[in-house]
Every structure is written in C-alpha cells, then in structure tokens.
Amino acid sequence: MLIGIMSDTHDNLPAIRKAVEFFNERNVDLVIHAGDYVAPFVAGELKKLKAPLKGVFGNNDGERKGLYEALGIYDELIELEADGMKIAVTHGTNEVLVRALAHSRLYDVVVVGHTHHYEIQEVGRTVLVNPGEVCGYVTGVKSVALLDTRKREVQIINLDTGELLGAMSL
C-alpha cells in the first residue's frame, strides 16, 4: 500500500492543490493529514484526492465542527493499520504524547506534524515521520512524505522540485 502523508497545510490552497496532484499522480491508496488544515474551505481541494483521507486536528484548527462536517476529521489521535503495519497519527503539539507513542512499541510508524520541519527518525523499533509543511510558510520548503508499506520505506519529497529530501527503510 502506498500512503501519502501531509501536514500543516495552513489554508495555502495552491500548495494543497500541488500536494493533491502529487498524490493523485502517484496513485496513493490512502492520504494521512497530521493536522493544521486551519479552515474548512480547504476541503474543496482535499476532496479532489482520489484516495481516502484520514487525519487529525492540529493546534491551529479552530473551526473543528466545520472540519468535521467538511472532511470527517474528529480527533487528535488516530490509529491505522495497513499491510500489517500499525500507524499512530497525532499533530505533535504534545511532545510527551509523541515520545510515549514512539517508545510504546505498539506502532511501526508514528506520524506527526506541528514543527513544520521534515524528519524521519528511528526510535527503537518505531519510525517517527514528520512530512514537514505543505504550506511552506515557516521553512520555505513545501514537502510531503510517501510511505510504501510493501517496500517498507518512507521518503520525504519537495513538492516544488521533486527532490528527495530524506528516506529510510523500515
């Protein structure tokens, strides 16, 4: 299964459009969003995804009722399973929770956002993935991640250049 991972879109509709096109071109099977959509109007672009979207709230998602109605987002932590891999998703605002999830040995992958900085980090038997920011507001780099559960690898890609920013085998 090929999973697209994004975070911190922050209402940047052209950047969201670019991420959606990237995921659609690669025929991902699922898209995970680690929060900070900001407003429900981003749903117009996110609904153009060919794959289902699963996501969590971030600390800047103030209009939660609208996000729930537009995208079905309703929680700050979700668990997913794909090809036998257990995945936890949270925005990353609570660093204690992130560390606990990563060290729990319950998950193969923990997906976070919040910092706007892309990162792939091994924590024991768990891989912590932050795809960076789709919006590009903080770092100037618009990035997403791809998780291939069959190849057991994760990659972070620059949306503007297509450059591989990082990769790790699981």
Score class of each variant (00 low, 15 high):
residue 78 I to N: 10
residue 74 Y to V: 11
residue 57 F to V: 04
residue 85 M to I: 08
residue 88 A to N: 00
residue 80 L to P: 11
residue 81 E to N: 09
residue 93 T to I: 14
residue 88 A to E: 00
residue 90 T to Q: 08
residue 93 T to E: 15
residue 73 I to K: 05
residue 65 K to L: 12
residue 93 T to R: 15
residue 85 M to Y: 13
residue 72 G to N: 01
residue 73 I to P: 06
residue 84 G to N: 06
residue 76 E to H: 14
residue 84 G to P: 06
residue 59 N to V: 06
residue 66 G to P: 09
residue 57 F to I: 05
residue 75 D to A: 10
residue 65 K to A: 10
residue 69 E to V: 09
residue 89 V to Q: 06
residue 66 G to M: 00
residue 76 E to W: 14
residue 56 V to P: 14
residue 78 I to G: 12
residue 63 E to K: 13
residue 71 L to C: 04
residue 64 R to N: 00
residue 69 E to D: 14
residue 65 K to Q: 13
residue 60 N to D: 09
residue 86 K to E: 02
residue 81 E to A: 00
residue 93 T to V: 13
residue 60 N to E: 06
residue 70 A to Y: 03
residue 81 E to Q: 09
residue 70 A to C: 07
residue 71 L to W: 07
residue 91 H to E: 02
residue 62 G to L: 08
residue 90 T to M: 14
residue 75 D to Y: 02
residue 80 L to W: 15
residue 77 L to A: 05
residue 64 R to G: 00
residue 70 A to M: 03
residue 75 D to T: 01
residue 66 G to F: 02
residue 81 E to P: 11
residue 56 V to T: 10
residue 73 I to Y: 06
residue 88 A to Y: 08
residue 92 G to R: 13
residue 57 F to Y: 12
residue 91 H to V: 05
residue 74 Y to T: 12
residue 84 G to H: 06
residue 67 L to Y: 02
residue 90 T to L: 15
residue 72 G to C: 07
residue 80 L to H: 08
residue 77 L to S: 00
residue 65 K to W: 13
residue 58 G to S: 04
residue 77 L to W: 08
residue 64 R to D: 03
residue 92 G to F: 07
residue 82 A to C: 14
residue 59 N to D: 13
residue 92 G to C: 05
residue 72 G to M: 04
residue 59 N to W: 13
residue 70 A to Q: 07
residue 72 G to I: 01
residue 68 Y to M: 10
residue 71 L to F: 10
residue 79 E to A: 03
residue 88 A to H: 01
residue 74 Y to A: 15
residue 81 E to W: 10
residue 56 V to Q: 08
residue 62 G to R: 08
residue 70 A to I: 00
residue 69 E to S: 07
residue 83 D to M: 06
residue 59 N to K: 09
residue 79 E to S: 09
residue 76 E to K: 14
residue 59 N to S: 05
residue 58 G to K: 03
residue 73 I to G: 05
residue 77 L to M: 03
residue 83 D to W: 07
residue 77 L to Y: 10
residue 82 A to E: 15
residue 74 Y to F: 12
residue 72 G to Q: 06
residue 77 L to E: 07
residue 71 L to Y: 03
residue 57 F to Q: 00
residue 80 L to G: 13
residue 87 I to Q: 03
residue 73 I to C: 04
residue 78 I to P: 15
residue 58 G to F: 03
residue 69 E to N: 14
residue 84 G to W: 13
residue 78 I to W: 13
residue 72 G to L: 00
residue 91 H to L: 04
residue 89 V to E: 06
residue 66 G to I: 02
residue 64 R to K: 11
residue 67 L to A: 02
residue 83 D to K: 07
residue 75 D to L: 00
residue 82 A to F: 08
residue 92 G to H: 10
residue 79 E to M: 05
residue 84 G to D: 05
residue 68 Y to A: 01
residue 82 A to Q: 15
residue 71 L to P: 08
residue 58 G to A: 00
residue 91 H to Q: 02
residue 80 L to D: 11
residue 80 L to V: 05
residue 83 D to Q: 11
residue 60 N to H: 14
residue 62 G to T: 01
residue 80 L to N: 14
residue 86 K to A: 02
residue 76 E to M: 09
residue 74 Y to K: 14
residue 60 N to Y: 11
residue 67 L to P: 12
residue 71 L to Q: 02
residue 75 D to H: 07
residue 77 L to H: 11
residue 57 F to S: 07
residue 80 L to A: 08
residue 58 G to E: 01
residue 76 E to I: 06
